[in-house]
Design a binder for these strands. Structure first.
Lengths: 342, 342
DNA sequence: GTGAAAGCGCTAACAA
DNA sequence: TTGTTAGCGCTTTCAC
């Protein structure tokens, strides 16, 4: 098994007795190649097993690669988004490459994004990025960009969000309708003013506050992180308080997993002693032994919309920016029930 | 916000009053640049915010990119492997890009692998690839390659595996020691002879058979897939049989999730009515309300070893191939207990 | 130790 | 419609 030189466009051109330009045109479905020429070239490509070198293409034209920045591969919500992106890109010439940022904060995230740009991505989809506005705009002027989950507009990038205010209200109203008066919320701690205005977790927390006030209920918020551990620690805090809530609204399913762990440890039964609701309606929420009440964000649609907007912007860099906002729905399951009689 | 031309090596060279060759040498830490020159160039790079274009580098040299083929982003075991890879690559010039193959079979997987090679990966890590031997060897002769989870040797690629035979035996012995006589196994259906000899799922199933025989127990195998749905459907099949098992050994945690869902639906309680064990010891197995007995494969070590072997092979393509085999351990939790009195 | 020049594989601009 | 030519940003070779 030798190391044979890779087949290049020159080999194809020679094999088909045409110019490299002709081959290039066929590759790109560009104007200026007769059907006969196309057929000849396509046959040569097939016979030689030619595949274009994306790096070389990128030097002059496009790499046909879309980069997706994933803030946390462990969050089971993101695969839904990815499926949507992949489905939308099927039957195009584009491929998706993922850049994993392991929940390591803004600097690590910026490095991943830069690394993907260095590698010639034609467009970028950033899932709930932590970067400041200025950085996001700089990225978006460098390469077509779509933001997922991030509220707030810019002429330079498109956004796809879910109505997190409504989503939080769905949970609060569901619990209040069941008779709960003391509903606590576990949020992802946020101090940065831009994040407070634009990050989905902050919008959810604010939606919780609004909905609670509208119902005339008192607000109880614990600030940790959107991780399993954050849910665990937040719940421990709540249980240590004198007046225990009858329901916990976790800002994400993965947080709810930690909540359930802490409650089980404390010997509390769900939903008999305490109700729990999550957010994202991940596949794990549907699991029999979990059966978590959650908010469905239609991750697949989010991803599909993001990919669609990105392709449009790759095709026309100067089109006006678009904001897509989807509406969440509540999926009631077995972790929520009326509160125990006091 | 304009679209400024990206800073190139020529800009850096001009700014530092040196040749582009000199800049290139500094970038690659190559021989032939005095400390003074290095300092000058590095300062120019910092001042201009220069970042090398990976595609252009790849045309002559390396892209400093490692491609990881992920067969299924939903499987919570893979993030552990990825963490290991990332940790090992920290403090090197390499970046990781992920190619997601959504459990779509061998053809889709081959397309992803090809797409990553087209995009100039310096090395590839393939996680439990489905491809045949010939294809894997062809990939490995094209670009340095390490296989994870795949048993079987080749001079062209390195492998990192876990001792799946032992892992399966750990589960069987654990359950048999608890008093179970009727232990069923849910496997990923496999007919391809190479897969039967090399894929981890097949080795696990064979390990189950061996361990059961050694204990003098009858074998019950249901063949579905390594997905949540596969676990669900497999369990329904088992429950429909006249003689219901007292324990189910799922070939992967994600399969066990489906098992638990089906059992909950059937009104069976775990572990009082039936015991369940998984494989992979994912973070979800540790969840309070799940608390799944599982086999720990040390995903982090698997990933770290794979990345280490890959870097060695990128540095020296002709080094002899290496096989790393790690040893699994059993993590008993609350889903396994003695069988109910008959 | 340093730099000039060639060339990697491709596409864009242009000429025929 | 087709082909010729230049050049994208970098590394390599080879003079000096």
């Amino acid at each position: 098994m030798e190391q044979p030189r890779r087949v290049t466009i020159v080999d194809v051109a020679r094999h088909a007795n045409v110019s490299t330009t002709a081959v290039s045109k066929v590759l790109r479905n560009a104007y200026g190649a007769s059907p006969a020429m196309r057929a000849k070239v396509q046959q040569a490509i097939a016979e030689l097993g030619y595949r274009p070198n994306a790096g070389a293409r990128g030097l002059r034209g496009k790499t046909y690669t879309i980069g997706v920045m994933l803030p946390d591969i462990r969050n089971p919500f993101f695969p839904d988004i990815l499926d949507g992106i992949t489905d939308q890109l099927r039957d195009t010439d584009y491929h998706v490459l993922l850049g994993p940022s392991h929940n390591n904060g803004e600097t690590a995230e910026a490095e991943i994004i830069a690394a993907m740009i260095d590698r010639g991505m034609d467009g970028m989809i950033l899932i709930a990025p932590l970067s400041g506005r200025a950085h996001l705009e700089q990225v978006a002027t460098t390469v077509p960009t779509v933001l997922i989950g991030r509220h707030g507009h810019s002429p330079h990038y498109d956004t796809v969000t879910d109505d997190d205010t409504t989503g939080a209200a769905l949970v609060v109203n569901h619990l209040a309708d069941l008779g709960h008066r003391h509903i606590a919320h576990i949020e992802h701690r946020e101090t940065d003013p831009t994040h407070l205005a634009e990050m989905p977790n902050a919008i959810r927390a604010e939606g919780y506050r609004q909905a609670m006030r509208a119902r005339g209920l008192d607000i109880t918020i614990v600030s940790t992180t959107y991780t399993q551990e954050g849910g665990y620690l937040g719940t421990r805090q709540l249980l240590a308080r004198p007046h225990r809530p009858t329901a916990v609204f976790a800002g994400a399913d993965i947080v709810a997993m930690g909540v359930l762990t802490a409650l089980a440890e404390a010997g509390l039964s769900v939903p008999d002693d305490i109700s729990v609701a999550g957010y994202d309606n991940t596949t794990f929420a549907a699991l029999g032994p979990i059966s978590l009440t959650s908010v469905d964000q239609a991750g697949h649609q989010i991803g599909a919309n993001a990919a669609r907007l990105l392709l449009e912007r790759v095709a026309d860099r100067d089109r006006p920016s678009t904001q897509v906002k989807l509406t969440p729905t509540l999926i009631p399951r077995r972790t929520t029930a009326p509160p125990p009689r006091a």
